[in-house]
Simulated scan of single mutants.
Amino acid sequence: MDLAYSEEQLLFRQSLERYLGENYSFAHRRHVAAKLHGFDPEVWAGLAELGCFGVPLTTEHGGFDGRLVTTGLVMQALGRHLVVEPVLGSAVIAGRLIARVAHAAQRDELLTPLIAGTSRIAFAHDDLGTKASLKGGADGYRLTARKTAVLGGATADRLLVSALNAAGELRLAILDAGTSGVSLHPYQLLDGSWAADVLVQDVTIGSDRILGDGSDAGPAITATLDDGVVAACWEAVGAMQAAYEQTCAYVRERRQFDRPLAGFQVVQHKVAEMAVCCEEAGAAALLAALKLDSEGADRDRAVAAAKVRISHCGRFVAKEAVQLHGGMGVSEELPIATYFRKLLTFELMFGSSMEYRRRYVKTVIAARAHEMSAVLPAAERADITLPAA
């Protein structure tokens, strides 16, 4: 297996890093997060021009790449620069879900403007209370839904809403955000990005607004949310690396007792542990991206392991970065406090670390992989069973 990035991937990452370095300062980021609901049209157009929104999609679907590793490089750069625009929710999750479920005409209608940056689609999936329902038939449907924590929902012009039909199968409906009966309630997340709760009150839609050929969208949703988890892992890795690098620069510059902080052995140990965590997190994210093209337990195990490991490493790096900066680590003058909030937010995205630990354990036991353990005594291996759901 070749783990080296291609020349095209490296050039693309370099171009994106250069664009963000010139156009997305920390001060600009604070303005976008506070005043613009996390969306700068000029930055969005610039990212589209670079091809960022086409990277998560294959050429068959009008995109440029389709591999999660290349998508991860995009997200890593966005994480380093604390970009709050909804690339994860729109280009990665909504884009890849449409590519999986929609038929050709729907893909052309929805993905072409998404890739060009002229449309922003948010995926509304998590129900707030009663599960969303889709009632009707070939002549039309009535959709009722209350969705929460919709990434990018605050500035979306279209909504991709999941709902159960009469047979208990998941379907995906596409709605304009301005449709009568649809209301958005935006709010800011801990890391400064924006989400929204979505209320759909008995809205009538045509059968052409239901994505796909009528089959259950559940498996496609599960696979796409795994894509989103891994993309978010890469974004967290980028934030970790930036926090680590800025901490290294700070301890070299900051002096105490007539010497730089970097001259104290205890500080060197902390910085070394941060470096190890960054390497571990990067390896976990890369492995998960490579496994996403596989099926079954290997895929599930890699995604769960990446989420758990990167959550743990991210918390450690964020905590030590704040500690080594002292009082400046909790001020708004430096990005460190924002990296801290970014990494804490990641830890809770798509479910807590404990949920992903359970998922990892279930995949290991279901595959009987624990029976090959060199650590567990043979007598204990036989007593391990799947935990209750």
Rank of each mutant, 00 (worst) to 15 (best):
L172E: 00
A374R: 13
T58Y: 08
I98E: 00
R96Q: 15
L78C: 09
L175W: 02
T345M: 09
C277V: 03
H185W: 11
A104C: 09
S331T: 15
M349N: 14
Q188I: 07
Q256D: 09
A297Y: 11
G214T: 06
S353Y: 07
R255E: 13
D383K: 14
A288E: 03
T179C: 05
A272M: 11
A321I: 02
E22G: 08
L78M: 14
L36I: 01
V375L: 11
Y5N: 14
G137R: 12
W234M: 09
P377N: 06
E42P: 04
T118G: 11
R13G: 11
D108P: 01
W44K: 01
A154L: 03
I205R: 09
L160K: 04
D216E: 13
M75W: 04
L68I: 05
R29V: 02
G38D: 08
F264S: 01
Y141K: 02
S373N: 14
A132K: 00
V87A: 05
A196C: 07
A45L: 09
A288P: 06
A173T: 05
H185M: 09
V32N: 01
D298Q: 14
A195P: 00
A195Y: 01
F350P: 00
G129A: 10
L151V: 13
Q76P: 02
V83N: 03
R30G: 04
R209H: 12
Q246G: 14
C233T: 11
V69A: 02
A48P: 01
Y339S: 02
A382Y: 10
E8P: 02
R67S: 15
L110Y: 09
G212D: 01
L199V: 10
N165E: 08
A45C: 07
L175P: 00
G214S: 07
L170T: 07
L287N: 12
V237F: 03
I384L: 12
L348D: 15
L159H: 06
P56N: 08
V251T: 02
D139M: 08
Q76C: 08
R158C: 04
C277T: 07
S183H: 13
R252H: 11
R252Y: 05
L114P: 00
